[in-house]
Amino acid sequence: MTVESYEITRAKPSKSSAKEPSGAKPLRRINPTRIMLYSVLLVAAVYYLLPLYVMMMTSLKGLPEIRLGNIFAPPMEVTFAPWAKAWDTACTGLYCEGLKVGFWNSVRITIPSVIMSITIASVNGYALSNWKFKGSEVFFTILIFGSFIPYQVMLYPLVIVTRELGIFGSLQGVIFIHTIFGMPILTLLFRNYFAALPEELFKAARVDGAGFWGIFLKVLVPMSAPIFVVAVILQVTGIWNDFLFGVIFAGVKNFPMTVQLNNIVNTTQGVKEYNVNMAATLLTGAVPLAVYFFSGRFFVRGVAAGAVKG
């Protein structure tokens, strides 16, 4: 609970804490300790940024330049050809139509999965926080436990189930799977959020004659925009980055971008085109990175929500 509530109550800890007599001893002037501190932080920042830099540089070089063997050097001659090839013509196994196929597949998987999983989980969270019924806590506990079970344990039976439902190897199949496996964390997220809202609001709405759906749609949802944003960010990045479910349940023609990226890089025959590989990698990482950089604290909140104890 500590982590999540901290994030909620202190939207801007860096600024608010600046005035309080808190944290370590404030060191105002430049002194050796302070220089050390920033040095360490900068070195760490370099380690974290290095791969991004290398990807970028490599993707803008021609193959001959890459063979010179300096991955850190900026390109002498900038070329966007690898990007074009990665997007349009790179070979993923049998087909050579580039990553764009995977991109659109990922879009077609991600959007409905995000909508489905959030719709179901938000209603679940609402039922669990405001309309507890006999056994509801038991189901919730199993659900949270379930999120720790390795997916491998449930894979084969799920293949059977989806096959019986006639959705194995289809978009619906992979959307179904994402909805199921998104349920624990999202339900937890929504349940905790709704439980933290004043209970009297819910009571007032009942006195005002709103029913189960009326309270949810007219009172709770309109005042819960932040948590929906957090959930969307969590799900968009999570589902976009998925590999395992895509490769098993989506079917070859619906392979998401991650699967196609892996195929481009790891199953090509002949000359390895590192520049194309890196361009493809950047393209695949672009969507979650964009979400991450634009969402800022909402992403952090979603991440930290994983550490919340029910």
Binding site: P198, L201, K203, A204, R206, V207, G209, V219, M223
Partner: peptide, 20 residues
């Protein structure tokens, strides 16, 4: 009976106004 059907009105400590 449901709260709405009891012929009551209620006022809460935290006011419980719908913020939106």
């Amino acid at each position: 009976a449901e709260p709405k059907d009891r012929g009551i009105g209620m006022v809460f400590q935290s006011y419980a106004l719908y913020p939106q």
